[in-house]
């Protein structure tokens, strides 16, 4: 179908995962592999939502199983809003968090269009938690733990170009089985996670009608005025100050001259001043 012209950031190397809900049997192997890969000790049966102790999980929605996790946007909203660059995007796509920079403003939680980041509300030194796309495993040449663990190949790992082509191939070959859209192809500028579903995505709890431009374009529209406000605004204010001051000085000198003239001429009624 369409190629994503907007995302210039996609290199042929951008890593991606294709998650096919029609293939998922809800075994939870991905969740367990994720816990293990991240050294988390949460009990799988207790996981009802994403949390600092569960970076992905499978939610049962009717007879479908839907994986939840960070979408790893190509133009990540969280990265754009973080005032200290605690969230950043590696060159191959994973969006990762550096707790040592974080000041805890939680703008990333507020801004994420997919409501993914989680906060450690009960810790004295809290941090943000979210899927890191197994960036350390990827650096070792391994695939993400969840993709490796999936027995049904419902989650597969690859480059974004090839997985996007694969997604469209599946939809085209089996149009009755799929809702005709790969979620993540162009939502908020495209995401590294691509999802296929038999039903419309908003019925599964995915946000409806997300814009195709990255959300950061909206804040940038405002931020890009900063240099103008500083320079033009500063010059204007300086001009106002100078003009009003000058006017006052002129008025003062004029009135002094008038008084001097009055003194030398004696009192004369009704001077012709404005």
């Amino acid at each position: 179908m369409s190629t994503n012209t907007r995302s210039m950031k996609i290199s042929t190397n951008t890593k991606s995962m294709l998650i096919d809900i029609t293939r998922c049997v809800g075994c939870g192997a991905c969740t367990e592999a994720c816990l293990q890969a991240h050294g988390l000790t949460t009990n799988v049966d207790d996981i009802k939502d994403l949390s600092a102790g569960a970076l992905t999980f499978v939610s049962e929605q009717g007879d479908l199983y839907v994986r939840r996790m960070c979408m790893h946007c190509l133009e990540p909203t969280c990265v754009s809003v973080c005032p200290v660059g605690a969230l950043h995007q590696t060159k191959d796509g994973p969006v990762i968090y550096d707790a040592s920079r974080c000041l805890g403003c939680r703008y990333c939680l507020q801004a994420c269009p997919f409501n993914v980041p989680r906060y450690e509300w009960d810790k004295v030194v809290p941090g943000v938690a979210k899927c890191d796309f197994c960036v350390t495993r990827q650096a070792q040449g391994l695939q993400p733990a969840c993709a490796e663990a999936c027995p049904e190949a419902a989650t597969v790992f690859g480059t974004r170009d090839e997985l996007l082509a694969e997604a469209h191939r599946r939809i085209n070959e089996n149009p009755d089985a799929y809702y005709p859209h790969a979620f993540g192809e162009n939502e908020v500028g495209g995401t590294s996670m691509l999802i296929l579903s038999p039903v419309p995505f908003d019925t599964l709890g995915y946000p409806r009608a997300l814009p195709h431009e990255p959300l950061s374009t909206r804040t940038w529209a405002s931020l890009s005025h900063v240099p103008d406000i500083v320079t033009i605004g500063g010059a204007m204010l300086l001009a106002i100050w100078w003009i009003t001051k000058r006017r006052e000085e002129v008025a003062r000198v004029e009135s002094a001259e008038r008084i001097a003239a009055q003194n030398s001429n004696g009192v004369h009624p009704g001077g012709g001043h404005a």
């Binding site: 754009s80 005032p83 660059g85 974080c102 000041l103 805890g104 450690e120 809290p126 931020l223």
Partner: peptide, 22 residues
């Protein structure tokens, strides 16, 4: 702030694309 002792971080860790930074 979750980590108020880091409140000064924006002064040295820049992200000009962030409204919060500004």
């Amino acid at each position: 702030l979750g980590r108020p002792w880091n409140i000064w971080h924006p002064l040295i860790m820049w992200n000009p694309h962030s409204v919060m930074f500004e």
